[in-house]
Computed example of a mutant assay.
Amino acid sequence: MLWPLASLLTAVLATLFAGWLVDQVLQRLAARRPDAPVWGLLRRCRVPLQLVLLAALLLAARPVHRVLHSDDAAVRHGVLLVLIASLGWLSVRVLAAVLEAFLSRYETVTEDASRVRRVRTQLGLVRRVGSAAVWTVTVGALLLTFDTMRTVGTSLLASAGVIGIIAGIAAQSALGNFFAGLQIAFSDTVRIGDTVVVDGQQGTVEEITLSYLVLRLWDYRRLVVPVSYFVARPYENWTRRDPGLLGWALLHLDHRTPVDELRAELERHLAGSELWDGREWSLTVTDTTPSTIVVRAAMTARDPDTTAALRLAAREHLLAYLRDHHPEALPRVRTEQDRTEQDRP
């Protein structure tokens, strides 16, 4: 009885030592190569790696059945299940670490924000598809270790065609979202971080999965939209090519408004503002009514959030300028009485 216990203890200690040794090696590699984040990310694989090593040692030494007083075949089958599941877990962790390291490296060498968002979206979907494929294979391998599943396998394969047709009809919506998610990822129509408008709701793309897309709205609510929506319907993407936008603010003013002075004041305000990107600006009269004129102040900024803040600040500044220097330019309701009515008895 002492020899099986010693063998089991040796296997556990060897597994712990191997995990510690691999972690130390990865830690030193990460310190020597800070520009290669893959070594630091691979340290997350320590636990599944230790489970794989322990299961492999137990299958090779076979000391467990004597300690547990169990049937040898049952114990080996249980250890084999642990080994297969641990291999699947390790594969998913390695895939996630490699993809995340590639993205981190890409972000350091690429200055184009739109390309970074596109690669982040594509790698996110690749990670989800790869993880789903690994777990599917893992579950299949686990089931095939049972004799009953291998016996039923022949009949299942014979009826696979009919089952596939039925499953395809039942999961038509899910499959449509799945392929729509792949199309979005690799067609570069919408990416994580893009500002889009869906059914009048403006939001920032926060997450893209194989079935739905999450938008963060201006008031921090989350709008969950099926990914098939972005394939079948039109929508606005404000940051697909260039995150910069042209914002505008409308002012309804009196006809006596000094437009030239207002235009000069807008130029001075934008020159001293940190929100303006220095590209474009304008102030023009776009419409007139019997009582007012419509003045449009347009200006550019580096991203949608900054554009919104800039146009709000510009509107407040122009109104305050007119109130302090040209109060006659603010719209008012005239109630002048007709002279002919005053002469009547």
Score class of each variant (00 low, 15 high):
Tyr229Asn: 07
Phe179Arg: 13
Asp199Gly: 04
Val224Tyr: 05
Trp248Gln: 13
Val225Thr: 08
Asp188Met: 03
Val196Trp: 04
Trp238Ile: 11
Pro226Asp: 09
Ile184Glu: 00
Phe178Ser: 02
Val227Glu: 00
Pro226Val: 12
Arg302Val: 15
Leu262Ser: 07
Pro290Thr: 10
Thr288Leu: 01
Phe178Asp: 05
Leu283Ser: 04
Val205Trp: 06
Arg268Ser: 10
Gly176Ser: 14
Asn237Ile: 06
Ala170Tyr: 11
Trp281Ala: 10
Glu207Lys: 15
Gly203Ser: 12
Glu280Leu: 14
Asn237Phe: 03
Leu250Met: 08
Asp277His: 07
Thr292Trp: 00
Asp303Lys: 10
Ser273His: 03
Thr292Leu: 02
Arg296Cys: 03
Glu274Ile: 01
Pro258Ile: 00
Gly244Met: 07
Asn177Ser: 11
Leu270Gly: 03
Arg241Val: 09
Pro290Tyr: 03
Arg296Ile: 04
Arg221Ala: 07
Leu210Gln: 10
Val198Lys: 00
Pro234Gly: 00
Trp281Phe: 15
Ala264Asn: 15
Thr292Ile: 01
Leu215Pro: 10
Pro243Trp: 07
Arg240Pro: 09
Phe179Cys: 05
Val294His: 05
Asp287Leu: 01
Phe230Ala: 02
Leu217Glu: 14
Val214Cys: 06
Glu265Gly: 08
Ser187Ala: 11
Gly244Ala: 14
Arg296Gly: 09
Ser273Trp: 04
Val259Cys: 02
Arg241Asn: 14
Met299Gly: 13
Arg240Ala: 06
Trp238Gln: 15
Val224Ser: 08
Leu245Phe: 04
Trp248Asn: 11
Arg221Phe: 03
Gly200Lys: 01
Leu217Met: 14
Ala298Ser: 14
Leu275Asn: 03
Val227Ser: 00
Asn237Asp: 09
Val259Ala: 00
Ser228Gln: 11
Arg302His: 13
Ser282Lys: 11
Ile192Ser: 09
Leu215Asn: 10
Glu267Val: 10
Ala271Asn: 13
Val225Lys: 00
Ser282Asn: 11
Val225Asp: 00
Val231Gln: 15
Leu175Val: 13
Ser173Asp: 12
Leu175Ser: 09
Asn177Pro: 06
Thr300Lys: 13
Leu253Asn: 00
Phe178Leu: 11
Thr284Ala: 03
Gly203Asn: 08
Pro226His: 08
Ser228Thr: 13
Ala180Thr: 06
Ile169Ser: 12
Thr286Val: 12
Glu261Thr: 04
Asp194Ala: 05
Arg233Met: 07
Val197Thr: 12
Asp188Glu: 12
Pro243Ile: 08
Arg268Tyr: 08
Leu223Asp: 07
Asp303Tyr: 04
Gly200Ser: 07
Leu213Ser: 07
Trp238Pro: 13
Gln202Gly: 06
Tyr212Thr: 15
Ala249Tyr: 05
Gln172Val: 15
Arg222Leu: 05
Glu206Thr: 15
Thr239Tyr: 06
Ser291Ile: 07
Ala232His: 14
Asp303Thr: 12
Val205Tyr: 05
Phe179Glu: 04
Asp260Gln: 11
Gly203Met: 08
Gly272Gln: 03
Glu265Cys: 05
